[in-house]
Design a protein around this nucleic acid. Sequence first.
RNA 1: GGAGGGCUCGCAUAGCGGCCGAGUGCACCGGUCUUGAAAACCGGCAGGUGAAAGCCUCGUGGGUUCAAAUCCCACGCCCUCCGCCA
Length: 422
Amino acid sequence: MIDLKFLRENPDVVRASQKGRGEDVTIVDKVLASDDAKRVAITEFEQLRAQQNVLSKSVGAASGDEKVALLANSKELAEKVKAADAKRAELEAVALSHAMVISNILDPEVPIGGEEDFVVIEHVGTPRDFSSAGFVPKDHVELGKLLGAIDTERGAKVSGSRSYYLTGVGALLEFALVNYAISSATKAGFIPVIPPVLVKPAAMEGTGFLGQAAENVYHLEKDDYYLVGTSEVPLAAFHMDEVLDVAKLPLRYAGYSSCFRREAGSYGKDTRGIIRVHQFDKVEMFSFCKPEEAKQEHQRLLQWEKDFLNAMEIPYRVIDVASGDLGSSANRKFDIEAWIPTQDAYREVTSTSNCTEFQGRRLNIRYKDSDGTKAIATLNGTLVAIPRMIVAILENHQNADGTVNVPAALQPFLGMTRFELV
RNA sequence: GGAGGGCUCGCAUAGCGGCCGAGUGCACCGGUCUUGAAAACCGGCAGGUGAAAGCCUCGUGGGUUCAAAUCCCACGCCCUCCGCCA
């Protein structure tokens, strides 16, 4: 949630932010109006309540005729208080429901525009020249079959489209990637976490996934639970309703979990292979920090993501994601896109978002320092999303015969230097 | 799924419908004393909101009442026992 005080004082900034995202601008005035009405109702209620408290006390002290008279007064006042309280509650709910619609306020540096309007920040590494090597690269589906690593046909048989089995070296590769990720994250001071992936509505709502992103979330209606699309959700909600000690910040967690995505609205996109799937595992970095440190922390998360790609020896580029393509909680987002030879394109493999205090306010997570209790800032970043990383590794490190070289960083975790044909 | 017990200010506890936003002990913070420490003693010590007055918060939500930590109802969580089970 945005800061209502900020909104009251800077409505134009919020309007511009909404506009930049391609979202409803008129909501700003609705929020201002409903917030105003709410504040008036609160004042009315509190004044009546104060009277009632005084009167009630005098009733207790009085006796006889005096008491009878006071009781009559009090009874009347109690009715008014009740009415005012009901009105207050109603207007508060309206104001909150409006306020929750507004997305996080864009960082002024975010490129304005739609999905295509990202800005490339840098390129790292050079895509291999397969033609000079004298062979046409195979795609990951074919390689996965040759290596006995990926089985999409049986995935479809058992679980429908966008499903797959990782088998043999494919399964081993996941373990190696996860182990490498967790061990490097731990070295960097992250606390490793295996979170629940089945969460209550409050966690989903608080992280901002029930707004525009709701259609991509699996909901178990019978029990009113959600399957998370990323461990960002349980990691953010880990400290829900808590006040954190400023001395412990930044507090960093690395969560390993399955992720579930409905992929509604992506029909026909990436239907081949395991680029876009309904279920995958991921190691996610999550950071709680002071708002004034969030921007630097964002750069740190990006650096850890780059370190991972570098270790995998995969060419990539970093993009500054455009305003229209940001999640509602993010005020800025950097994606890392790995080079995928058979698509002749860079494709998103990791992503890091600065959510500033937006989630902190929704989840009621604060920190305490010498001058008070304030909303905390949260940031998230992918360390490794397994299927896409597997795609990048197989395709970039393949040999003419279909074998694949294992990046040096993973060799200790795999106990092999090459994936052989089965 | 069935049967019980419990949820009060960091922890542990007290709490008759009004004098309870709430006592006590421990912990914690500051001070006196001490070469230093311990002990002792003195003082402070829940949070939110608000400029303040005030208002709100005793698991959560409703209800009864002029007035609820205290009475009633529902739900949640925790613990014990039984059944089922990865």
